[in-house]
């Protein structure tokens, strides 16, 4: 039972100390937080309302005056169209450089389209090989 009494004493003392220490820490923390707070002048509700109105008024002006409607092409933002165009063109050029098969709008041998190379070859077929004047 002596042990129990000692244990109880430990509990009360221990918990008391832990709480007291942490409460002290709390107080100190609050002090640090208080000291470190950015100085902010107190403002009455009326003043803050006026301030808000002022900012809102400036914002209203700004919306009306300075920010034009973003330019659009057929209802799509112009910069977006430009981005898409540049990207597609770049992509097409890339593919052409890679000679990707998908770049063939017309299959080889098509009568609808001929590359310069093919066109030159076809044109040569139309020339006679016999010397002129014979």
């Amino acid at each position: 039972m002596e042990n129990l009494a000692w244990g109880l004493q430990m509990t009360v003392l221990g918990m008391g100390l832990v709480f007291a220490l942490l409460a002290l820490l709390w107080a100190l923390l609050m002090l640090v937080l208080y000291l470190d707070k950015e100085p902010k002048p107190p403002m009455s509700a009326h003043e803050s309302h006026a301030e808000a109105e002022r900012i809102a008024a400036v914002a209203d002006d700004a919306i009306g005056a300075q920010v034009p409607e973003p330019p659009t092409v057929n209802g799509m933002p112009a910069d977006l169209v430009a981005a898409i165009l540049v990207a597609t063109m770049k992509h097409k050029l890339t593919l052409r450089r890679q000679a990707a098969p998908i770049m063939r709008t017309y299959w080889p041998g098509s009568q609808l389209f001929a590359s310069r190379w093919v066109a030159a070859g076809r044109a040569r077929q139309n020339y006679t090989w016999q010397p002129r004047g014979r």
Partner: peptide, 27 residues
């Protein structure tokens, strides 16, 4: 914790088991 310093007391309460167990172990 710094945003909400009063939580520090909860941490203190969370140590109660130490002392209760101490008594049990003594018994």
């Amino acid at each position: 914790l710094l945003e909400n310093p009063r939580l520090i007391l909860i941490g203190a309460a969370g140590q109660f088991g130490i002392f209760l167990t101490l008594i049990l172990a003594l018994l």
